[in-house]
Protein backbone atom coordinates (compact mmCIF):
# COMPACT_ATOMS: atom_id res chain seq x y z
CA UNK A 1 0.00 0.00 0.00
CA UNK A 2 1.08 3.58 -0.65
CA UNK A 3 -0.18 6.75 1.01
CA UNK A 4 0.68 10.42 1.27
CA UNK A 5 0.70 11.55 4.91
CA UNK A 6 1.43 14.71 6.86
CA UNK A 7 4.34 14.77 9.29
CA UNK A 8 2.69 15.14 12.72
CA UNK A 9 5.76 15.53 14.82
CA UNK A 10 9.49 16.10 14.38
CA UNK A 11 11.91 15.21 17.18
CA UNK A 12 15.62 16.03 17.04
CA UNK A 13 17.10 12.90 18.61
CA UNK A 14 20.81 13.71 18.22
CA UNK A 15 22.72 16.46 16.39
CA UNK A 16 22.50 14.40 13.17
CA UNK A 17 19.30 12.40 13.65
CA UNK A 18 15.60 13.28 13.60
CA UNK A 19 12.45 11.26 14.07
CA UNK A 20 9.39 11.98 11.94
CA UNK A 21 6.04 10.72 13.22
CA UNK A 22 3.03 10.30 10.90
CA UNK A 23 -0.32 8.50 10.83
CA UNK A 24 -0.20 5.33 8.74
CA UNK A 25 -2.74 2.55 9.24
CA UNK A 26 -1.13 -0.72 8.07
CA UNK A 27 0.10 -3.03 10.83
CA UNK A 28 3.85 -3.22 11.18
CA UNK A 29 6.28 -5.26 13.26
CA UNK A 30 9.66 -4.22 14.68
CA UNK A 31 12.29 -4.86 12.02
CA UNK A 32 10.14 -3.89 9.06
CA UNK A 33 10.80 -0.85 6.89
CA UNK A 34 8.87 1.57 4.72
CA UNK A 35 9.81 3.47 1.59
CA UNK A 36 9.71 7.17 2.44
CA UNK A 37 9.09 9.48 -0.52
CA UNK A 38 10.26 13.05 -0.14
CA UNK A 39 8.46 14.69 -3.08
CA UNK A 40 10.77 16.36 -5.62
CA UNK A 41 13.73 14.65 -4.00
CA UNK A 42 14.01 10.88 -3.64
CA UNK A 43 12.46 7.84 -2.00
CA UNK A 44 14.51 5.90 0.56
CA UNK A 45 14.08 2.77 2.66
CA UNK A 46 13.73 3.55 6.37
CA UNK A 47 13.27 1.11 9.21
CA UNK A 48 10.27 1.96 11.36
CA UNK A 49 11.45 3.25 14.73
CA UNK A 50 7.85 3.34 16.00
CA UNK A 51 5.66 0.44 14.87
CA UNK A 52 2.73 0.36 17.31
CA UNK A 53 -0.65 1.88 16.56
CA UNK A 54 -1.26 4.26 13.70
CA UNK A 55 1.28 6.91 14.78
CA UNK A 56 4.29 5.35 13.09
CA UNK A 57 7.76 6.86 12.95
CA UNK A 58 11.06 6.74 11.13
CA UNK A 59 14.35 7.98 12.49
CA UNK A 60 16.64 9.44 9.88
CA UNK A 61 20.38 10.02 10.17
CA UNK A 62 22.12 12.48 7.87
CA UNK A 63 24.27 10.25 5.66
CA UNK A 64 23.86 11.39 2.06
CA UNK A 65 22.35 14.44 0.38
CA UNK A 66 18.74 13.33 0.62
CA UNK A 67 18.93 12.29 4.27
CA UNK A 68 20.64 15.61 5.08
CA UNK A 69 17.80 17.49 3.39
CA UNK A 70 15.23 15.30 5.11
CA UNK A 71 16.38 16.60 8.49
CA UNK A 72 14.77 19.90 7.50
CA UNK A 73 11.30 18.42 7.09
CA UNK A 74 8.81 20.26 9.31
CA UNK A 75 5.51 19.13 10.86
CA UNK A 76 2.69 19.61 8.36
CA UNK A 77 4.82 18.70 5.36
CA UNK A 78 3.61 15.84 3.20
CA UNK A 79 5.64 12.71 2.53
CA UNK A 80 4.81 9.47 0.74
CA UNK A 81 4.91 6.14 2.55
CA UNK A 82 4.69 2.64 1.07
CA UNK A 83 5.03 -0.63 2.89
CA UNK A 84 5.67 -1.92 5.44
CA UNK A 85 8.06 -4.34 3.79
CA UNK A 86 10.36 -7.10 4.91
CA UNK A 87 10.54 -9.40 7.90
CA UNK A 88 10.84 -8.70 11.61
CA UNK A 89 12.64 -9.59 14.83
CA UNK A 90 11.27 -12.53 16.79
CA UNK A 91 10.78 -10.96 20.27
CA UNK A 92 10.44 -14.22 22.22
CA UNK A 93 13.99 -15.02 23.42
CA UNK A 94 14.30 -14.54 27.22
CA UNK A 95 17.78 -13.01 27.50
CA UNK A 96 18.84 -10.85 24.58
CA UNK A 97 22.06 -8.98 23.91
CA UNK A 98 21.45 -6.05 21.58
CA UNK A 99 24.43 -4.44 19.86
CA UNK A 100 23.51 -1.09 18.32
CA UNK A 101 25.93 1.13 16.43
CA UNK A 102 25.14 4.64 15.17
CA UNK A 103 21.64 4.77 13.69
CA UNK A 104 21.13 1.04 14.27
CA UNK A 105 19.05 1.88 17.34
CA UNK A 106 16.29 3.13 15.02
CA UNK A 107 15.19 -0.41 14.17
CA UNK A 108 16.32 -2.04 17.42
CA UNK A 109 14.37 0.26 19.79
CA UNK A 110 10.89 -1.00 18.83
CA UNK A 111 12.22 -4.58 18.83
CA UNK A 112 13.53 -4.18 22.39
CA UNK A 113 10.16 -2.70 23.38
CA UNK A 114 8.43 -5.79 22.04
CA UNK A 115 10.83 -8.11 23.87
CA UNK A 116 10.42 -6.18 27.14
CA UNK A 117 6.63 -6.33 26.78
CA UNK A 118 6.97 -10.13 26.75
CA UNK A 119 9.13 -10.00 29.87
CA UNK A 120 12.48 -10.51 28.15
CA UNK A 121 15.72 -9.36 29.80
CA UNK A 122 17.59 -7.09 27.45
CA UNK A 123 21.13 -5.73 27.58
CA UNK A 124 21.87 -3.03 25.04
CA UNK A 125 25.47 -2.31 24.03
CA UNK A 126 25.05 1.11 22.47
CA UNK A 127 27.83 2.78 20.52
CA UNK A 128 28.31 6.11 18.76
CA UNK A 129 31.05 8.54 17.78
CA UNK A 130 30.38 10.78 20.78
CA UNK A 131 27.96 11.02 23.74
CA UNK A 132 25.29 13.30 22.16
CA UNK A 133 25.04 10.85 19.22
CA UNK A 134 23.98 7.89 21.40
CA UNK A 135 20.61 7.31 19.73
CA UNK A 136 17.64 6.37 21.95
CA UNK A 137 19.77 6.16 25.12
CA UNK A 138 16.87 7.45 27.26
CA UNK A 139 14.32 5.41 25.36
CA UNK A 140 16.22 2.18 26.07
CA UNK A 141 16.59 3.19 29.74
CA UNK A 142 12.86 3.89 30.01
CA UNK A 143 12.16 0.38 28.72
CA UNK A 144 14.15 -1.09 31.58
CA UNK A 145 16.97 -2.39 29.40
CA UNK A 146 20.45 -2.61 30.89
CA UNK A 147 22.69 -0.19 28.98
CA UNK A 148 26.40 -0.50 28.27
CA UNK A 149 27.82 2.49 26.40
CA UNK A 150 30.82 3.03 24.14
CA UNK A 151 31.94 6.14 22.27
CA UNK A 152 34.81 6.64 19.87
CA UNK A 153 35.97 9.73 21.82
CA UNK A 154 35.32 8.33 25.29
CA UNK A 155 32.77 11.05 26.15
CA UNK A 156 30.38 8.39 27.46
CA UNK A 157 30.99 4.81 28.52
CA UNK A 158 34.04 2.97 27.26
CA UNK A 159 36.32 4.65 24.74
CA UNK A 160 36.35 2.77 21.45
CA UNK A 161 34.01 0.75 19.27
CA UNK A 162 30.96 -0.92 20.77
CA UNK A 163 32.30 -4.29 19.63
CA UNK A 164 34.70 -4.15 22.61
CA UNK A 165 32.04 -4.28 25.35
CA UNK A 166 29.87 -6.51 23.15
CA UNK A 167 32.59 -9.15 22.89
CA UNK A 168 33.19 -8.99 26.64
CA UNK A 169 29.48 -9.31 27.43
CA UNK A 170 29.27 -12.34 25.14
CA UNK A 171 32.15 -14.02 26.95
CA UNK A 172 30.89 -13.21 30.44
CA UNK A 173 27.13 -13.08 30.18
CA UNK A 174 24.50 -15.66 29.53
CA UNK A 175 22.22 -14.81 26.65
CA UNK A 176 19.83 -16.73 24.43
CA UNK A 177 20.09 -14.51 21.37
CA UNK A 178 21.93 -11.54 19.89
CA UNK A 179 20.40 -8.77 17.81
CA UNK A 180 22.47 -6.22 15.98
CA UNK A 181 22.20 -3.28 13.63
CA UNK A 182 24.84 -0.75 12.68
CA UNK A 183 27.80 -0.47 10.36
CA UNK A 184 28.27 -3.75 8.54
CA UNK A 185 31.88 -4.19 9.60
CA UNK A 186 30.67 -3.94 13.21
CA UNK A 187 27.87 -6.47 12.61
CA UNK A 188 30.31 -8.88 11.02
CA UNK A 189 32.41 -8.78 14.20
CA UNK A 190 29.32 -9.30 16.35
CA UNK A 191 28.30 -12.32 14.28
CA UNK A 192 31.74 -13.79 14.62
CA UNK A 193 31.93 -13.16 18.41
CA UNK A 194 28.46 -14.63 18.96
CA UNK A 195 29.35 -17.63 16.82
CA UNK A 196 32.37 -18.26 19.04
CA UNK A 197 30.03 -18.80 22.02
CA UNK A 198 27.39 -20.59 19.95
CA UNK A 199 24.71 -17.90 20.03
CA UNK A 200 22.26 -17.25 17.18
CA UNK A 201 22.31 -13.71 15.75
CA UNK A 202 19.73 -11.60 13.95
CA UNK A 203 21.19 -8.76 11.89
CA UNK A 204 19.25 -5.93 10.31
CA UNK A 205 21.09 -5.23 7.06
CA UNK A 206 20.97 -2.17 4.84
CA UNK A 207 21.57 -2.10 1.09
CA UNK A 208 20.92 0.38 -1.71
CA UNK A 209 17.25 -0.18 -2.47
CA UNK A 210 14.93 0.87 -5.28
CA UNK A 211 11.78 -1.18 -5.84
CA UNK A 212 11.42 -2.89 -2.43
CA UNK A 213 9.46 -5.59 -4.25
CA UNK A 214 12.18 -8.18 -4.83
CA UNK A 215 12.48 -7.37 -8.48
CA UNK A 216 15.06 -4.76 -9.46
CA UNK A 217 18.05 -6.54 -7.85
CA UNK A 218 19.53 -3.30 -6.44
CA UNK A 219 19.63 -4.76 -2.89
CA UNK A 220 21.03 -8.16 -3.90
CA UNK A 221 23.17 -9.62 -1.10
CA UNK A 222 24.57 -13.02 -2.03
CA UNK A 223 21.60 -15.27 -2.80
CA UNK A 224 19.20 -12.85 -1.03
CA UNK A 225 17.34 -9.64 -1.67
CA UNK A 226 17.35 -7.47 1.43
CA UNK A 227 13.89 -6.04 0.67
CA UNK A 228 12.01 -9.35 0.65
CA UNK A 229 14.32 -11.91 2.29
CA UNK A 230 15.40 -9.43 5.00
CA UNK A 231 16.15 -6.91 6.24
CA UNK A 232 16.60 -9.15 9.30
CA UNK A 233 18.95 -12.06 8.53
CA UNK A 234 20.22 -14.97 10.59
CA UNK A 235 23.92 -15.59 11.09
CA UNK A 236 23.51 -18.76 9.02
CA UNK A 237 22.03 -16.89 6.10
CA UNK A 238 24.80 -14.32 6.23
CA UNK A 239 27.41 -17.05 6.15
CA UNK A 240 26.27 -17.74 2.57
CA UNK A 241 26.42 -14.06 1.61
CA UNK A 242 30.06 -13.49 0.79
CA UNK A 243 29.58 -9.72 0.44
CA UNK A 244 28.28 -9.22 4.01
CA UNK A 245 30.67 -6.90 5.83
CA UNK A 246 32.93 -6.68 2.76
CA UNK A 247 31.18 -5.31 -0.30
CA UNK A 248 28.09 -3.33 -1.18
CA UNK A 249 26.62 -2.28 -4.52
CA UNK A 250 26.09 1.32 -5.57
CA UNK A 251 23.06 2.64 -7.46
CA UNK A 252 24.47 1.31 -10.74
CA UNK A 253 24.88 -2.19 -9.31
CA UNK A 254 28.65 -1.92 -9.22
CA UNK A 255 30.27 -3.94 -6.42
CA UNK A 256 32.48 -1.82 -4.18
CA UNK A 257 34.44 -2.65 -1.03
CA UNK A 258 32.85 -1.35 2.19
Amino acid sequence: MRAVVRVEERVAETPTTVTLRFRYEPDASPGQFVMVWLPDDDELPMSLSYTRGTLKGVTIKAMGETTRRSLGIAPGQRIGIRGPYGNCFDPTPRRILVVAGGSGSAVLAPAVEAARALGGEVTVALGATTAPELLFRERFEAMGARLVLATDDGSAGEKGFVTGPAERLLREGSFDAVWTCGPEVMMRKVVSAAGAVGLPVRCSVERHMKCALGMCDACALGPFHVCVDGPVFTDRQLASAEDFGRFHRDASGRRRPL
Binding site: E43, R82, C211
Partner: peptide, 13 residues
Protein backbone atom coordinates in the same frame (compact mmCIF):
# COMPACT_ATOMS: atom_id res chain seq x y z
CA UNK B 1 29.58 2.96 -18.84
CA UNK B 2 27.91 2.63 -15.45
CA UNK B 3 24.62 4.47 -14.86
CA UNK B 4 22.93 4.92 -11.49
CA UNK B 5 19.48 5.14 -13.10
CA UNK B 6 16.80 7.66 -12.15
CA UNK B 7 16.18 8.77 -8.59
CA UNK B 8 13.35 7.05 -6.73
CA UNK B 9 10.42 6.60 -6.91
CA UNK B 10 11.22 4.32 -9.80
CA UNK B 11 8.27 1.99 -9.35
CA UNK B 12 4.53 2.06 -8.71
CA UNK B 13 2.77 -1.21 -7.95
Amino acid sequence: VGRPGYPNPTIES
